[in-house]
Amino acid sequence: MTQPQDEMLPISVTVDGRLETGQVSSRTLLVHWLRDDLDKRGPKIGCDTGNCGACTIRWDGLLVKSCMVLAAQADDTRVETAASLAHDDGSLNDLQACFKEHHGLQCGYCTSGMLMTATDLLESGEEITEHSVRRGLKGNICRCTGYENIVRAVRAAAGHDVEKPHGAAEEVAS
C-alpha cells in the first residue's frame, strides 16, 4: 500500500461570526475541523453516515450535516453552529428556552443538531404543524426523549399552545 500523501490546503471560514483560518487535509471533514481544531462542541458525531444529524450546522445559510462536507469546501464561507444561538448576554434564545421549558433534551448529545434543524424550519416560512415539525426533524435522531417533548418545544417556539410537561401545568393552574 502506498503511503497516503495529503494535500494541505489553507482555509478561512467565518464560524459563529468569527473569522477562523487553518490548514486542512483535502480529506478532512468539516465536522472534524470544527471540533478538533476549533473546539466547537455544537456539531457532534453520532453515526459517520449522515443519518443522525448530530453534526447539523448552517453553511452559508443552508442546513447541512457537517460530516457530509469537506473542510476544504468551506473555504471562504460562513458556518453557524448551535454555539451561535444564545443571546449575546449568554441567555437562551426563544427556541432554546422552549427546549428547556418543555424538557426537550435529556443527554443533550443530539440537542445542538436538533436546535439547528429546528431553527432552520422555524425560519423557513413553512407552516408549523405537528406533522411538519416531525417531518422537519426526521433527519435528526434522538435516543433519549422519544421526540415528543422536542416536537412540543419547537411548536411552542412557533407560538403554539402545547401541553406543558407533567407537573408544570398544575403549577400554572394554581
Partner: peptide, 15 residues
C-alpha cells in the same frame, strides 16, 4: 415539583 433542569443551559448552548 417540576423544576427545570440545571443541566440544560450548558447543553443548549453547546457548552
Amino acid at each position: 415539583k417540576t423544576v427545570p433542569r440545571k443541566e440544560d443551559d450548558r447543553l443548549l448552548k453547546a457548552q
